[in-house]
């Protein structure tokens, strides 16, 4: 399942996508994120699921443009170079901006 956390407002699209089918629930992304944006949660989308999945914390989902700003200088960055994306060897995490 592709879970898109974030928002679209007048200033643009800001989404972090978590591919829960690939997610092993290891938590490396959450440990790496310097802003504490990610966490492991119970898989509430699949009533039979046993392992937790990575998710964007509720308090950050409405402001990830700002929460993720320290990793995204205006001078440029690549999505592949972001700490959370790099930390996940399963390729679960993607950013839309």
């Amino acid at each position: 399942m592709k879970a898109n956390y974030g928002y679209k407002d007048g200033s643009g699209d800001f989404f972090i996508t978590v591919d829960t089918d690939k997610c092993t629930g290891c938590g490396d992304c959450a440990k790496t994120c310097p802003a504490g944006v990610l966490e492991l949660v119970d898989n509430g989308y699949d009533i039979d699921a046993e392992t937790p999945i990575a998710a964007v914390k509720k308090e950050h989902s409405k402001k990830i443009k700002y929460s993720c700003a320290p990793c995204k200088p205006a001078a440029g960055y690549t999505t592949a170079g972001l700490p959370c994306v790099k930390a996940c060897t399963a390729g679960v995490i993607d950013h839309s901006w």
Partner: peptide, 15 residues
């Protein structure tokens, strides 16, 4: 009726 993808926008009142 099992979710395969979703997106939620609850930050912005537009839409």
């Amino acid at each position: 009726g099992k979710v395969t993808a979703f997106l939620m926008n609850d930050k912005c009142a537009a839409g």
